[in-house]
């Protein structure tokens, strides 16, 4: 190897072959690990999705699981909830994160380092910690209601965990609290790559702050926005922790997500692994479609 590489001429001839083998060397560890710990289980669970049964005994069920899925009111409810989160939470969070990032990108603002960390901090907490906090803060008699009552925003306590609408709002608040700072970090980093001369020129042309944001920042950030929205889509469709730990999926399944329902089918109810596998392939399918749509919408055929 070494002699080949030292002679420029020979190397030139064998670039293709050399490239191939060295490239494989670098990616091999990852590929083996992904193969064993992701792809094999994925295939195995795909086969499982055509079976049904209880406990440890399974039999082939063809498309029976899919038929069952279409009649499963809890699944349909979970699908609906997941879409509500997707439609409301992802845009709210992305817009908020972009706004915060552009505010923090202003060099005239003091204590930027402090604000940046403060806003990033929520995503550092563990999910167990965060769900304990939120559950108690948003109890009927909890801190949040006490404060809202004290400043006269509401006349009576909001039934955060008891009302289907407010429970969804609570999930959206929790998600936004936890992940906005994380996304903000991506935008802020990307903004710092935008040359200040663009903004300078825009100001001279009389563009106001919003116009600068709309016509300079957003277009230049498109790849990052795409990346974060695809990641958030995956995250939302696989949403589990918040539903499981904060609202327990209730009231009356009003906040249950698809992943949470899979968990119930696996570990709360009498387990049916075949059916659970079928439901999880629904998620894969949806994520793939949504990611594709997002790529098309942003007019970018290459990954960010």
């Amino acid at each position: 190897m070494k002699t080949i590489r030292q002679s420029g001429l020979v190397r030139h001839h064998s670039t293709a072959g050399f490239h191939r083998s060295t490239g494989w060397m670098f990616v091999s560890f990852a590929l083996i690990l992904v193969g064993v710990f992701s792809i094999y289980p994925v295939i195995s669970s795909f086969l499982l999705s055509f079976q049904t049964g209880r406990g440890a005994v399974y039999h082939f069920n063809g498309l029976g699981n899919i038929q069952r899925l279409l009649k499963d009111t809890v699944f349909l409810q979970a699908l609906k909830n997941t879409f509500v989160y997707f439609i409301f939470q992802v845009p709210i969070m992305i817009i908020l994160a972009l706004t915060i990032a552009s505010v923090l990108n202003n060099p005239k603002l003091k204590f930027r380092g402090f604000f940046r960390i403060a806003i990033f901090l929520p995503c550092v907490t563990s999910l167990v910690a965060y769900s304990v906090l939120f559950k108690s803060m948003f109890a009927l008699d909890g801190l949040v209601n006490r404060m809202l009552l004290a400043i006269n925003v509401v006349a009576e306590p909001i039934p955060w965990l008891l009302d289907p609408f407010w429970a969804k709002v609570l999930i959206i608040i929790a998600l936004t609290w936890r992940w906005t700072g994380y996304n903000m970090m991506f935008y802020l980093s990307a903004m710092q790559n935008i040359s200040p001369s663009y903004y300078e020129a825009a100001r001279i042309d009389g563009a106001n702050a919003f116009q600068q944001f709309r016509y300079i920042t957003v277009p230049l950030l498109k790849p990052v926005i795409l990346f974060t929205s695809v990641m958030s889509t995956i995250g939302t469709l696989q949403l589990f922790d918040e539903s499981m730990n904060i609202t327990g999926g209730g009231p009356a399944n009003a906040t249950i997500t698809i992943s949470h329902y899979i968990y119930n089918v696996l570990f709360r109810f009498t387990p049916n692994f075949g059916y659970a596998a079928t439901i999880s392939y629904v998620i894969v399918f949806l994520v793939a479609i949504l990611a594709f749509v997002q790529f098309k919408l942003t007019g970018d055929d290459h990954a960010a």
Binding site: D72, T73, V74, P164, G250, A252, N253, N264, F269
Partner: peptide
């Protein structure tokens, strides 16, 4: 889970028999 999902309609004054029918269907599917 099936009962919990129909309780709100019963609290709201809906028909108990209908709610239990819906719960029964959900339970049978589950």
């Amino acid at each position: 889970s099936a009962i919990a999902s129909v309780l709100p309609s019963i609290y709201a004054g809906g028909s108990v028999a209908d709610a239990l029918k819906a719960a029964q269907a959900q339970l049978e599917n589950a």
